[in-house]
Write a protein that binds this DNA or RNA. Structure first.
Length: 265
DNA sequence: ATGGTCGACGCTCGA
């Protein structure tokens, strides 16, 4: 089985790329982030024509997560327990940043971790709380069933190592590289999860995100921020991980590329 | 040529 994660940066702008990718890469389950639409706007038909069921959650033009599967899609969960809310003005809202579903016995989570914006921005505290609450849930699932097969897939908006950014000098005092963010990210490993993309691709300069600004793709000014944590039993099934850099090429590319996990049957 | 991006509910916001 192959499962993948991809921050698609608008599913409506890139549905053809998404379905082409599923077929070309022979992917069974795809976790999508930044779909940027409500379910009633989601282009389900091309996925269904290709043989995939889709669960989608979105509240407005921001955020949005979805899971496409051709191996079953059960027990869909919008958000996790105690997922924090955020609102710059007005009442805080639980944003569409986490969607879970069971696909062929694997609890797949599509995660779009808050960006943080700046170290002194309320969004940064929100990001840290969001990760902590997710960790508590992830720990709880393994307490209930230590053999649970859980995949925490998505855009984590954290660069865990200095070599995950093209130039640390540029990131001095910025989000994505701060010690609290890195500690929050690493706490999932303390909880028994393994970040398998690093395990299988330990090489430096294997990036997943090239900002559109400042010609960062041709200049290779990039980040590694898309990751896949797997629970112990699922980690034992992972036979390989691929970062599909080619998906950043050409007209109409997302600014992120897919990360693909191969699982033994 | 010393700049240069996208996507969305877009005269602006978020990444």
């Amino acid at each position: 089985m192959r499962i993948a994660t991809w921050n698609i940066n608008s599913i409506r702008a890139r549905v053809d790329r998404a379905v082409d990718f599923l077929e070309r890469a022979d992917v069974d389950v795809l976790a999508l982030q930044e779909t940027k639409c409500k379910p009633e706007q989601f282009p389900f038909a091309p996925f269904e024509a290709a043989g995939y069921e889709v669960a989608a959650w979105g509240l407005n033009q921001w955020n949005g997560v979805a899971i496409a599967s051709r191996v079953g899609l059960e027990d869909v969960r919008e958000g996790f327990t105690a997922q924090p809310a955020f609102g710059k003005t007005g009442d805080p809202v639980v944003e569409a940043r986490a969607l879970g579903a069971r696909c062929a016995g694997v609890d797949v989570w599509s995660l779009y971790v808050p960006h943080g914006r700046a170290l002194d921005d309320p969004h940064y505290a929100y990001k840290l709380e969001w990760l902590e609450k997710l960790r508590l849930d992830a720990v709880g699932w393994l307490e209930v069933d230590p053999t649970a097969q859980v995949a925490l897939l998505g855009d984590w908006n954290v660069a865990p190592f200095d070599t995950d950014v093209w130039d640390m000098a540029v990131f001095e005092g910025q989000t994505h590289v701060s010690a609290p963010e890195r500690a929050a990210f690493n706490s999932f490993a303390d909880a028994g999860y393994t970040e398998v993309s690093r395990q299988f691709i330990p090489d430096e300069r294997r990036y997943t995100y090239w900002d559109y600004q400042q010609l960062r793709f041709p200049k290779n000014e990039v980040l590694r921020i898309d990751f896949a944590y797997t629970s112990p039993v699922l980690t034992g099934r992972v036979t390989g991980v691929t970062i599909d850099r080619d998906e950043r090429k050409g007209k109409g590319a997302s600014d992120h590329v897919p990360v693909i996990l191969d699982l033994a049957d």
